[in-house]
Write a protein that binds this DNA or RNA. Sequence first.
DNA 1: ACCCTCGCATTTTTT
DNA 2: ATGCGAGGGT
Length: 764
Amino acid sequence: MSAEPASLPARPSLSERARAPGAAPYLDTLNPEQRRAVETLDGPVLVLAGAGVGKTRVLTTRIAHLLATGRARGQEILAVTFTNKAAREMRERIEALTGIPDGLPWMGTFHSIGAKLLRRHAELVGLKPNFTILDTDDQLRLLKQLLKAENIDEKRWPARALAGAIDDWKNRGLTPADIGAREAAVFANGLGAKLYKAYQERLKTLNAVDFGDLLLESLRLLREQPEVLERYQDRFRYILVDEYQDTNVVQYLWLRLIAQKRRNLCCVGDDDQSIYGWRGAEVENILGFERDFPDATVIRLERNYRSTGHILGLASGLIAHNRKRLGKTLFTGAAAGDKPTVRGVQDSHGEAREIGDEIEAEQSRGTSLADIAILVRTSAQMRAFEERFVEIAVPYRIVGGPRFYERAEIRDALAYLRIVAQGDDDLAFERIYNTPRRGLGETTLAQLHAAGRAANASLTQTARTLIETDELKPKPRQALRDLLADFERWRGLPGSTEELARVVVEESGLVAMWKAEKTPDADGRLDNLKELVRAIGEFPTLDAFLEHVALVAEAQSEDSGPRVTMMTMHAAKGLEFDVVFLPGWEEGLFPNQRALDDNGLAGLEEERRLAYVGITRARRRIAIYFASNRQVRGLWQSSPPSRFIDELPEDHVEVAEPADPPTYGYSSRFDDAVFSGGRYETPGWKRAQAQAASPGYRRPAPPRVIEGRAVALATQASLYHLGDKVFHQKFGPGEVAVVDGPKLTIDFDKAGRKMVLDSFVSRA
DNA sequence: ACCCTCGCATTTTTT
DNA sequence: ATGCGAGGGT
């Protein structure tokens, strides 16, 4: 989702203006293609929207137009996105356009709309309306139980693999009955189908669904209940789909079914940005749109408003190497700008040093850190940058790490809340019945399971009965009794959701547990619990909050000054930055060897699209790096530059002066495999050699004064003094040894002497 | 029941 | 390098 300004007048309201003959001023600011995409309302429409062409603007204006012209009311429009972020952004922009809050009840992610359908018609698919939505963790725990029950060696057939297979089947619209012998064979010598079936049955008894079910079960609902299907076919006069290239088979079938009757389906997407094939997305859906809808209107948006000419040229030249594409050529009226650079470096540390220096240079030129991003292929690459940035005190943030609601401490607290909301949530019970430690172990749980199965009752129900008997030893019996009493008490608690959450995290012992913990991250975890309590206060009921958590799972965003953004290229889709650094362009890493091994040419093309996504994130500057040596899994590896570097169009790149010249020839397991494979002759290789041979570099003068800000900070009295005891998230406790404005040199108890920025530490 | 040590795998990730 | 899970010892 790009961030073109929504330059739209606030009043009079849209509908008022539309009522005046010929008045639709919101159309005037669109270019001709955008306008066509907005105004072609009837029948199937495919909008091929390249990077930075104003896609979100087209979608939101189209919806506003539908409303303004009276073609549809808000509740008659179905608008689906992939991420909550995209849905939120669209909702906000439409509200700004129309002035109507909450006007689009059916705008949301595929999953949230699936959940809404299922809750409405739960009984028709064998669920109760208050079903639980399981996350990956619960799912794995459940599968492990099933594997154990079948006596399957979890070493050989890990639960993760089964989860993957089931997810894959669900993405492809296959129910257990659809799994033939060949498919079933992918797991545990053909037991796959049987396990899938058992899993689905378990889910039903738990009154639970997983993410895949939100789609697959709602598809089943529509298929098996003609009246329900017809109702929604009639209701949704207009359907819009964002990121169509990312749809999988179920989503495709689901859309086709709902859209079949009125046929007013508008899909927006970009085949060149399809980077989620590995999780079930079918580029075929977008490639075959015209085959599926022969009367479709296809509109190409190719005018780019984001990047300079050279950046677009670079991206276009690279993506042209893909064979399977619909074909689109982005152009811009903007200046050519600076040529993107390619630079070879010695290793990942050199790379981090270079980029760190470049960031400081950008900063001294007035670029805000918030406008700078480092986009990597794999998360592991981020570590080197983190270390360097901590050293040189460049503030950074990592997008997409472990998400807030997936952190262990949060999931524990949530499990308690889930049991309060729904006493029969066995998976939640299993998670926390001995967290914090209360002397309940495997033995007790096994007893509960056995008795529960016999009585066909949930674990808490069973526990309630069992503590009245003498089956259990006195200690676990009392522990269990106390736990159940807690559940009861919390359930009866008057007051706000926030108050409830506060009591639960306190009385469950979770807070005490982390307070007692001595690890450096314990403090952060306590903060997270506080944040959870705060977050829950924004919801009227516990149920509403839990639904939000299951479906939205968004991280908290607290702003604390501009920071460099670090993330994977996958996570960067839809974002834009002035300056983008693209490190790690080496064979094996990018294109990733695994993608190549698993998916051959298709895998290579997807990697190339990923490169395209990475490049097109930049507004004015791109810098690509490749390192000749990199530590991969504890081992040093030497790889040649990425083939993508050789594919870059010469006119739009500049080979940067070697700062930390790459040297090859490290012995590595790739020596024979790759280096004798003929790649010595490629231009990229020669480039690398040329750099290696060129005279040593002058290190860019260390960027000193950072325009006013650093000066101001430096003269300001520091928050810390010599000898202060401080605490750092990463390094733990330490003592201040040198104070230099905001930069502190600290002797850490564990990590030794490091220079860090004062905003990264707190008083110990 | 809890703690410790050894072995093994390790792309990308949303919902 | 690193972290998670299984298995053995206390």
